[in-house]
Simulated assay, not measured.
Amino acid sequence: MPYNWTRPQQNTERELHLWPHQSLPAQGYVRFLGLTAVLICVPLIPVLGSFLLWGLLPFLLLALFGMKWALDRSRRDHQILEVLTIGKEDARLERINPDGRRQSWHCNRYWTRVEMHDRDGPVPHYVTLQGGGREVEIGAFLSEQERVALYGDLKSAFSR
């Protein structure tokens, strides 16, 4: 699951860290780009030593660097971290966006309500926290089954 509960030094607080699933780890990224480079070079074997090589090479290199740029962009866009801290008296949610901006929400823990919108939200089983006059989303980047599990975990965490 792309989220986990941690216990800081104080036993009175619990922290939940959420992040988007990264389907391509660093080792897979290198392997994919290497294999793509090798497969792109296969059509160049018959034209080695001719002028046609220099006509094809820029386009093949452009395709390879385009693939690298797209993978890097996808990885950068999914560098999101949400941290929910549930203390004795309060609950805090902080979201760190890919561009480094931080968004935060703060509420009295006893007035916090965990809601699941089965069909009303932008995604199925949309989970929100309500309190302090605001409603904020949590874990919208998770899969549908992960959001259902998260909802149960949050309900039990706030009921303690």
Rank of each mutant, 00 (worst) to 15 (best):
R101A: 12
W54F: 15
R101W: 05
Y110H: 14
S74C: 08
R92K: 14
W69R: 15
F51N: 08
R73W: 11
I40V: 11
Q22L: 08
L35C: 13
G66F: 10
R102D: 01
L35K: 09
W69H: 13
I45A: 13
Y110L: 13
P98R: 00
S74E: 14
G28D: 08
T112D: 08
P58Y: 00
G66R: 09
H106F: 13
Q27W: 10
L33N: 12
L52P: 01
Y29E: 08
W69P: 06
K88Q: 02
E89L: 09
L39T: 08
E94D: 07
K68S: 11
L57V: 07
L35N: 09
T112E: 09
W105N: 03
R31K: 07
L44F: 03
T112Q: 07
V47K: 02
R76K: 14
I80L: 14
L84H: 06
W69G: 04
I45W: 13
P43S: 04
A37N: 05
L93K: 01
L61D: 00
V47A: 02
K88C: 01
A26D: 13
P25W: 03
R31E: 06
L53S: 01
C41F: 12
G87I: 04
G87A: 15
I96Q: 07
L53Y: 05
C107F: 02
T85E: 00
V38F: 10
G49N: 06
F59A: 01
R92Q: 11
G28C: 09
N97L: 12
F32Q: 06
R113A: 15
R73S: 10
A63G: 15
A70M: 14
L60Q: 06
R31H: 07
L24K: 06
L56G: 00
I40Q: 06
H21F: 05
L44Q: 00
R113S: 14
Y110R: 13
L71I: 10
L60S: 04
W111Y: 13
H21T: 08
Q79A: 08
T85R: 06
R95Y: 06
L64D: 03
A63K: 10
H106E: 11
F32C: 04
A26P: 08
V30M: 09
E82F: 08
V42E: 04
R95M: 07
P25C: 02
S23F: 07
W105L: 04
V47D: 02
I96T: 14
E115N: 15
P98F: 03
L56K: 04
G55V: 09
L60W: 07
W54V: 05
G100D: 09
P25D: 11
L64K: 10
L57F: 15
